[in-house]
Amino acid sequence: MAKNIWVYIDHFKGQAVPASWEAVGVARTLAAELGGGVTAVVFGDGVESLARQAIQFGADDAVLAEDASLADYRAEPYAALLTSLAQEHSPQVVLFPTTARCRDLAAVAAVDLNTGVLVDVTALEVAGGKIVATRPIYAGKLLAKVTCAAEPVLITLRGRAFPKPEADEARSGDIVRVEPVLGEDEIAVKVTGYSEGEGGVSLTDAAVIVSGGRGVSNNPNLQPPDGLSEEEQEIWRAQQGFKLVGELAAILGGAVGASRAAVDAGYIPYAHQVGQTGKVVSPDLYIACGISGAIQHLAGMRTSKVIVAINKDPEAPIFKLARFGVVGDLFDILPPLTEALKERLGK
């Protein structure tokens, strides 16, 4: 067991993040180029099915640790276990999806293993037996090639940057069970609770994103209920605007994004912010409604495949990046657009 190329399967309460499977696909490609095989690494509680799925997606075998102390992600028990496994088996490479958890885990493992992490990688090549990764820096304003001279090379892969492999239900492989290395009494950090995020599609995994900016509150024709302060009236208007944005997103099975101006004005929570200090996204379709296209916003969505801009101002910089542009009021355009797409998509 334990091949030279490892993939860490990140999950949230037993549900794998899609980029974990993309990472399995990348691991297969690396195995073809470097020689060797792919081992999936799965930690959690009640997560055996993830080990099986990883094999179906292309891993040759899996290492599985299931324990109550691993039920929720925590850096201490997860990193201690990953490090001890890596010390025992000396993999060449460990791949992770780029998630909040994996940034943490890879960071700590790199310290313990005296190696480095290539973070949020969007392309990989093997040149002369060495892995050369490409990653965006300055929020995608530049690209850098990066290499790591020590082993294992730890690499986190950006979601949606690599294709998701097809699962093959006939594939099988060994699942080797391992025990955690830290007991609960040796772990300083205790999980005391959980609050669910808002439901819906996660921005970084979404194939379609419809985003709203400051323009979503700009509809003087809407009459807010009596008794609201000026600020409350603005937020009320913005909620009507975001409702239209949300309806379009829902029809397209997409997620709702926002500019920082919309977030700062209190129209929508920060979790929706796209841009240099928000989320960097790369959907197939990005529809920007009432967003001017400041450089910090563009940094977060410029690699989207098709960009559509709906804006009243024909001079808005967002149009320079857009495949399709509509100069108009989003309150006029969005309702018939949602209707037209609903009809065409048979929803």
């Binding site: 949230f12 309460k13 929720d72 992600y73 925590r74 998630t99 909040a100 958890r101 300083a188 950090v189 205790k190 999980v191 005391t192 609770g193 959980y194 609050s195 669910e196 995020g197 996660s202 970084t204 979790a271």
Partner: peptide, 15 residues
């Protein structure tokens, strides 16, 4: 005690 934003939700932890 902190509330960690893990994307899918918030994890409350103490240390």
């Amino acid at each position: 005690q902190v509330e960690r934003d893990l994307g899918e939700g918030r994890q409350q932890v103490t240390a």
